[in-house]
Amino acid sequence: MNIEIDDRYIPTEHGDVFTRRWRTNQTRKTPIILLHDSLGCVELWRDFPERLAAATARDVIAYDRLGFGRSASHPGGWSPHFIRDEAEYFFRPVWQGLDIEHFVAFGHSVGGAMAASVAARYPRNCRALITESAQAFVEDRTLRGIRQAQAAFAEPGQLDRLRKYHGEKAEWVLSAWIETWLSEGYAGWTLAGSAPGFACPLLAIHGVEDEYGSVVHPQHIAALASGVTQTLLLEACHHVPHREHADLVIRAVDEFLYAMVC
């Protein structure tokens, strides 16, 4: 299948947001919108979006959240409610700027929590929800994994890995992730606070060896759904299934969306 890549910036009241769309010209199929993880951006999805577009024969769209990648700096006001805020305030102008009515929300890690919040807030528009390695609450394993990453990034030269993708925003990206999740004020966070429920079909993907969350997380996410739910647990898989087991993830997403006729 011929895939065309369309890069564009969408102006919002808080600054320009960078988006990339892998176009398939299959306009009758609902496009997939990808929401990245806490340190992620469009580029860090690597070749997964193009492969997903080709396999599902539908457009795939990714965007850099404000403060990340090529998008403008975050406008401030970062808080323990940042997941809910993304769905309520920042996602809408991006989605509307894409000139699409319906979409499939697919989020990795904290992007999965954001995708669930989007599904809950826009039930008429979100046709299906896919979460990958998403957290539903603050678990000891999550905090342990973040502390280990914090120590790793403190080593000389490690921050340069983030600067490659986020430029001068890299320090903010790292501190926003670490300081929020390790703060006392965030200890009681649960996904139910920003996504109290959603009716669209759900596919929850999780690696059994995920260093940031045990397999109870997809169970908690499924408990918020009132529609069809599917869970895919991947053996010998850590926090990035779409990189570690890309073929399995793409096949599962394709079969799920085909069955849901969306």
Rank of each mutant, 00 (worst) to 15 (best):
Leu203Phe: 03
Ala53Lys: 06
Gly188Pro: 03
Ala225Ile: 05
Glu43Ser: 13
Leu159Ile: 14
Trp189Gln: 02
Glu50Phe: 04
Arg28Val: 10
Val253Thr: 08
Leu162Tyr: 08
His74Leu: 11
Arg161Ser: 15
Ala136Phe: 00
Gln230Pro: 06
Gly97Met: 13
Phe82Trp: 07
Ala199Pro: 06
Pro31Phe: 07
Gln158Lys: 15
Pro49Val: 09
Ala199Gly: 14
Arg58Leu: 06
Ala62Thr: 11
Ser133Glu: 07
Gly188Arg: 08
Leu52Ala: 04
Asp85Arg: 10
Glu255Tyr: 00
Gly107Met: 05
Val94Arg: 04
Glu4Arg: 13
Met260Tyr: 05
Thr142Arg: 05
Tyr186Arg: 04
Ala128Asp: 06
Ser79Gln: 09
Arg51Ser: 10
Ala115Gly: 02
Trp95Arg: 07
Thr12Arg: 09
Gln26Trp: 09
Phe198Ala: 02
Ala72Val: 12
Ala62Arg: 06
Gly145Tyr: 01
Val261Asp: 15
Phe256Asp: 04
Phe82Val: 05
Ala192Lys: 14
Gly111Asn: 04
Val173Ser: 08
Asp85Trp: 05
Arg46Trp: 11
Gly157Arg: 10
Pro93Arg: 10
Lys29Phe: 09
Cys237Gln: 01
Ala136Trp: 00
Trp172Pro: 09
Ala113Gly: 15
Leu39Asp: 04
Ala119His: 09
Arg127Val: 14
Glu255Thr: 09
Asn2Cys: 07
Gln148Asn: 14
Leu34Cys: 11
Phe68Arg: 05
Glu139Met: 08
Ala120Ile: 08
Ala113Trp: 02
Asp254Ser: 12
Ala152Asp: 14
Ala149Ser: 15
His217Tyr: 00
Pro49Met: 06
Ala222Met: 04
Phe18Asp: 05
Ser226Asn: 07
Thr12Gly: 08
Glu255Phe: 00
Leu234Ile: 15
Gly227Ser: 08
Arg127Ser: 15
Gly112Cys: 02
Arg8Val: 06
Ser175Ala: 12
Ala236Cys: 05
Gly188Ile: 01
Ala115Ser: 02
Phe153Ala: 07
Glu244Gln: 15
Phe256Pro: 09
Tyr186Asp: 01
Ala151His: 13
His220Gly: 00
Ala176His: 11
Thr131Val: 11
His239Cys: 04
Gly107Ala: 05
Thr56His: 10
Thr12Lys: 08
Leu233Thr: 04
Glu13Pro: 07
Ala87Met: 09
Ala154Leu: 12
Arg20Ile: 08
Ser214Tyr: 03
Ala195Ile: 01
Tyr212Asp: 01
Glu209Asp: 14
Leu159Arg: 14
Ala87Thr: 09
Trp22Val: 12
Ser71Val: 10
Leu35Cys: 13
Ile3Arg: 11
Phe91Ala: 07
Gln150Tyr: 12
Ile146Gly: 05
Ala225Phe: 04
Ala116Val: 00
Val261His: 13
Tyr212Asn: 01
Glu211Ser: 10
Asp140Ile: 08
Gly97Thr: 14
Glu101Gly: 15
Gly197Glu: 07
Arg92His: 08
